[in-house]
């Protein structure tokens, strides 16, 4: 997968398939054993749990449960909120990372710190902070009302707006760090060269800069989508019942109802969704590679 992604031709790879590769496999053995025991085995036992009935016989009715009625609508909600979060954290993260990558090292480090520090505060405390900011009597609404903005106070909490604000803020450190790394790697001389050939700022951005950072964008977007899929504390605290996420249902089943099979089925569905997301990004990026190759 990595080989096709990177677009490395097959010939040099075959040359490497010799002693070096075999030694490499030997080195990888401990890690593989570790993953088998602590990662693959638990996932398979979860898989097994999800197709077992209470008396141990095989069944698919946990999946049927998970994919009907209110559970299905919760699943769609989860996808929707994850997608919204990915989109917003990508756009805002892009702007922030772009700004930070232009700063000198010291201010850049400081700006980075400001982006990351909120992560060290407990989710509960942070959410109470949001209530003080976004509530009907919160800072934002007071300010808007004071300025005489029509329609204020706006409902910024306990609905989808509140959830997306919260999850996006949670996700920003990831997207900013990731995009910042990619943006630092962009050779500025390429942009200068494009400018010297008479390209306008917009054209430089679209034809030179964006293609150079595109892989980073795809990864950052995917990462925030996947992480948001499993969120539930922030959506539970900042949203309403219409923003219930699937992880919340899993938690309820395990903690309140001691119902592990149904929870396992929902966990497996979540895992499959994640794989689908990965596959999608791989497809898009390999399409991009193919297009680039045919263009050159």
């Amino acid at each position: 997968m990595a080989a096709t992604l990177a677009g490395v031709p097959a010939r040099p790879r075959r040359l490497l398939a010799s002693r070096r590769t075999r030694i490499g496999i030997l080195y990888a053995l401990p890690a593989v054993a570790y993953l088998l025991a602590l990662f693959v085995y638990p996932i398979f036992s979860t898989l097994l749990l999800s197709v077992q009935d209470l008396d141990g016989s095989l069944t698919l009715h946990w999946y049927a449960d998970a994919l009907t009625g209110v559970n299905l609508s919760v699943l769609f909600t989860t996808l929707r909120i994850a997608a919204e979060t990915a989109l917003f954290s990508l756009v805002i993260g892009f702007l922030l990372a772009n700004a930070i990558s232009r700063l000198r090292p010291l201010p850049a480090a400081l700006a980075m710190l400001i982006v990351v520090v909120p992560h060290f505060i407990s989710a509960l405390v942070r959410t109470y902070g949001w209530i003080i900011m976004l509530g009907d009597k919160g800072l934002v609404n007071q300010l808007l009302a004071g300025l005489g903005v029509p329609g204020a106070p706006y409902q910024l909490l306990y609905n989808e707006i509140g959830v997306v604000i919260g999850t996006t803020a949670m996700m920003l450190p990831y997207t900013v760090l990731l995009l910042y790394g990619v943006m630092r790697g962009v050779d500025r001389r390429l942009l200068a060269a494009a400018a010297s050939m008479g390209a306008g700022r917009l054209v430089i951005f679209r034809r030179v800069y964006l293609p150079l950072v595109a892989p980073g964008l795809a990864t950052a977007g995917l990462l925030s989508f996947i992480l948001a899929l499993g969120y539930y504390i922030t959506p539970a605290l900042m949203g309403g019942p219409n923003q219930t996420m699937i992880a919340s249902l899993i938690n309820q089943q395990v903690m309140k109802q001691n119902q592990w099979n149904g929870a396992a089925a929902e966990g497996v569905i979540l895992l499959l969704l994640t794989f689908a997301g990965l596959l999608l990004v791989k497809l898009v990026s390999s399409l991009g590679e193919a297009k680039k190759r045919s263009a050159s």
């Binding site: 992604l5 996932i43 979860t46 790697g185 990864t219 992480l227 994640t274």
Partner: peptide, 23 residues
């Protein structure tokens, strides 16, 4: 390309996080 490969690998590992955290 290497950086991106590593990132994708990282993302693949992260992919399992929600499921693990949940189950």
């Amino acid at each position: 390309p290497i950086g991106r490969r590593a990132l994708l690998r990282g993302a693949a590992a992260l992919a399992a996080l929600p499921a693990l955290a949940a189950c």
